[in-house]
């Protein structure tokens, strides 16, 4: 009957593969968290079997039988037993606290030689800015073997930056910085979640940590944070890059490409057509300046009938990226 031991056996070979019930251990910290997790889990199985086993044993042994005169024991308490079962759990609890506190301090104090990356969470996407290189990217691309320090803040509501593979999580509070660090060991891609409820597309606020070898990382930095060309290494057409930005930068959450109006107007056939604005003025045909202005200062000319809720992408998209988005919109006839 005991689920615990089956699980324990499965647990044993959980080294670096994602077992069916635990993410992989991508860093030293992850394995130390797992070892405390296992310690508490074995302890809980032991006490669970002790308590529930005793309960079942008593129910079976002292089950009332028909016709047998009932004689029950007059025991009302037993001071030694009561002291024993307060002190022993007390000691075990202190051990759990101390071990948890030790590991937790390790994750709180950032090592010295960490490479700093700034993270901005906003309603429903993450953006990562590399201060030295001035690159802004939707994914966290890092070289293997280099400790990374994340300095995070939010633009609107509470979010929470969570990488299960590294077992780290920190709330991203608007108006304040919060700090997190991890040391990626070898090349891999890890999933990033938002775990603090933040509204409509809280479940779509996902991103990736791409751990590259140092050469590939240098290459990535060299061409300004864009994945170099498709398979054949030839440059990707601008509209194609625009489509990737459309999906990764959160435009998809409010603008559709098939004509249906969502939170914002649809991009299908938008280029070159007339638009009436909320403040009564209108524009004969949508041109590149209007699109660029709406990306950088969305509140300037809002299309009539739509809420003025679009966040500004000032400083998050460089000119080449805005160029490719405009190309993409043009291609949507």
């Amino acid at each position: 009957m005991n689920l615990g031991f089956a699980l324990g056996h499965l647990m044993a070979q959980a080294a670096n593969t994602a077992s069916w019930w635990k993410p992989i251990q991508a860093s030293a910290h992850a394995s130390s968290v797992d070892s405390l997790f296992n310690f508490i889990m074995y302890l809980c199985f032991f006490f669970f079997v002790l308590i529930i086993g005793a309960m079942i044993y008593f129910v079976v042994k002292y089950r009332r039988k028909e016709g047998v005169p009932i004689k029950t024991s007059p025991i009302k308490g037993n001071h030694t037993l009561e002291i024993v079962w307060s002190v022993i759990p007390g000691i075990l609890l202190v051990i759990m606290f101390a071990w948890g506190f030790k590991d937790w301090l390790a994750i709180a104090v950032v090592p010295a030689n960490a490479m700093e990356v700034r993270v901005t969470g906003q309603k429903w996407n993450w953006t990562f800015t590399y201060p030295k290189e001035g690159i802004v990217s939707p994914d966290l691309v890092v070289p293997a073997g280099q400790t990374i320090k994340l300095v995070m803040t939010s633009k609107d509501v509470l979010h929470s930056f969570y990488i299960p593979d590294f077992r780290i999580k920190r709330d991203v509070v608007p108006g304040r910085y919060s700090v997190l660090w991890f040391d990626p060991a070898e090349e891999a891609t890890h999933q990033i979640f938002c775990t603090e409820y933040c509204g409509t597309s809280h479940s779509n606020m996902l991103s990736k940590v791409k751990v590259l070898s140092s050469e590939k990382y240098e290459q990535w930095i060299a061409n300004g944070g864009e994945e170099e060309g498709g398979a054949g290494g030839k440059p990707i057409p601008l509209a194609e890059k625009g489509k990737k930005l459309y999906e990764s930068r959160g435009c998809v959450a409010c603008h559709s490409v098939d004509g249906t109006a969502k939170v914002g107007p649809s991009w299908k056939g938008a280029y070159g057509t007339a638009h009436k604005f909320a403040d009564g003025s209108s524009l004969a045909s949508t041109d590149e300046n209007y699109i660029r202005e709406s990306i950088l200062v969305p509140g300037a000319k809002v299309v009539a009938g739509y809420p003025n809720v679009m966040p500004s992408y000032q400083g998050q998209l460089n000119d080449k990226q805005i160029e490719s988005i405009i190309e993409y919109i043009k291609s949507l006839k």
Partner: peptide, 14 residues
């Protein structure tokens, strides 16, 4: 107990 100890709670919170 898992959620009470600090380092495991960082992984399991929310």
């Amino acid at each position: 107990l898992f959620l009470g100890s600090l380092s495991v709670d960082i992984h399991l919170h929310d």
